[in-house]
Design a binder for these strands. Structure first.
Lengths: 202, 202, 202, 202
DNA sequence: GATGAATGAGCATTCATTCAT
DNA sequence: CATGAATGAATGCTCATTCAT
């Protein structure tokens, strides 16, 4: 069997596994569920993955890889003005939404399942989040350096808070019926919160 | 055995269950783990709770109840100026931290375990969050009405975004060594983000 | 449940396990076979033994213990003449036959199953045999010292050869219909071989 | 593919199987282990042997055949004196050692694996041993008839006892570092035991 | 009420064997 | 003929739950 077919089958199994994991959760998912979905023998699963945990790990790694790639695409020091920054924020938000919107099920796994399955996975997710936090902080530091963000920002803490908002946004947009409209609403509000605050200014 | 003793034992079991669930997670927790911790027979467990799921549900209900109570303590319409509002924000934040700081294990369960165990529980948590979002929105609406918050706020979306930040904050503070210091840093940054934004103003 | 009942049940399971192992062999024995024989749930088995290997090990240890006890009962330096020695040989042979005759199935396990299941078990059996060889050698050395056995005996090798004969004898006697008669025949021949040899002397 | 090639491949597979069976034991040996050793597809195995059991049987048959051939090479009635007999004993012992020394792995299979795999195989081995016992008995009877062995020998029993010693010897020699030296020691002791006995004679 | 012995449904995983290519 | 992907029967083991004592 050629390389392509093997990879195809592997992908099919991952695809089916994502489906079942996102529907039933890790623990309630039986290998036979995944196999049945593909109409293959459940022994076949084990030709492609070592164990149930193995495939879950593979899915998690994929997810984390995607997020990592996304985050590194934009250079943190690129923007030189508040306007640049707003635009950049928009691009980042868009990419993140795109990643998850491609497959809502992945997001569901990331948030409903990744934690609590296994200490290793917890750590993996924590590290991914930490990485994401660091990148966000770079943007903030850049803004402070370029003098378009407040000089007294607690960048470490604010980076995490901002990312918290972003994750909530992702979830909300993905749960919305009209995702484009939701995306606009959230983007506007998040960017308002981040840059301008809610207080009415004279 | 009188009513009191029964309730005492029930509480003991819940206490032990919280301990074990937060350490091992729902699926890895065995009823016998809980029983052993209390030095009772594991058959006894079933005289107080119908099933493993039953007690987990009870814990979740408790948690959600606490959050609900906290939220309703403050009247959303109380503050009349930005200063009042800042103060109120601080009180709300404090209460929330207090709930979770009383028992970090509860928080761990809420975030690491509640999701993914069962669809019913997911829904319950979603509802609690929705409730919390609604309350937060009331504060925003009050601020808009009283003219100390921007009139064009998308209160529904912003409420959710703000709550997202708050949850991230709770996690961060609880994970910190010096929780009081962390609380101050986070409270300052979150309230800055909420009210003033990061942009440097001329 | 009191200690006695627990031990009783444990013994019952061992008894049933010996039965099934000796009939079907280790690998072909299913835990459920053992459980069915006792009309107990197969989960019950695991209350008394950690695993299939665990109980097999327990049986092996028992067997080895018995042999060890038997061997140490007779003092190797007791006999002072060829006549004493013949008598002692008879006693030793008798004990060994007794051990195995109590339960032919144990013997079958020792010879048909103990080897090849697991390296640890192989080693255990080898050690038991080595021990037995050493004891036998003590008897030979005593005989040489007391001058009723040839001074040029290669005691190490001969001890092993003698024990080889003894094991073959055990097997033969146990397989015989009339075990008492068979015992007599074998005992006579083995002791003749050991002490006098087959050659006709002038 | 011509007959020769087919037989060659069959032999190769048997050779590899002996290797793996003797290393891992029957049950722990996977068909794919054998195939991998030969760098052939494991499906190919089934073109030459019906099943895992089939090849094991073939190996066992081979082994038994070899022993049979060896035993029949020497005519039991050849020796006419004790001296002849001693010499013949040496030749027989030598051939037996040779068979097994050619391939220690075969011996390991014979002793560690043949028993306990399957009732049919057990019976086969028993028959081979029985055959060997019968031949040995012929030598004894010849010795009695030719009056160089005691007239009162229980030839049936003694044949078996002697063979027991011989098997133990084989094992010991094969396990020894210096096999030639070991062979000498064992041969001397066994032949002493057989013909002369251990007792010191005046 | 308390206990913990008994239970068996349930599931991950292995591997001999088949058969389409 | 050779291959190795696919298969699924088979089994050890866990643990929530029951119930006799």
């Amino acid at each position: 069997m050629n390389e392509n077919k093997i990879n195809q089958r592997r992908s099919d199994i991952i695809e089916a596994a994502i489906q079942v994991f996102s529907e039933k959760g890790y623990h309630a998912t039986k290998i036979s569920d995944i196999a049945e979905l593909l109409k293959i023998g459940h022994g076949t699963f084990y030709r492609y993955f070592k164990s149930k945990f193995d495939i879950f790990n593979a899915i998690a790694d994929d997810l984390i890889l995607h997020v990592g790639q996304m985050v590194t695409t934009e250079a943190p020091t690129e923007s030189n003005s508040l306007e640049d920054y707003r635009a950049q924020l928009n691009r980042i938000g868009k990419s993140l939404f795109d990643i998850f919107m491609t497959d809502i099920r992945i997001f569901r796994i990331a948030f409903y399942e990744l934690l609590g399955v296994d200490a290793t996975l917890n750590e993996k997710l924590e590290n991914a989040i930490k990485l994401f936090d660091l990148y966000t902080e770079q943007y903030l530091i850049n803004g402070v350096n370029k003098c378009f963000l407040r000089p007294d920002l607690d960048t470490e803490v604010i980076a995490k808070a901002v990312n918290g908002m972003i994750f909530v946004s992702c979830k909300a947009v993905l749960d919305a019926e009209d995702k484009d409209a939701a995306y606009q609403r959230w983007m506007n509000s998040v960017s308002l919160l981040m840059l301008d605050g809610m207080a009415l200014r004279a």
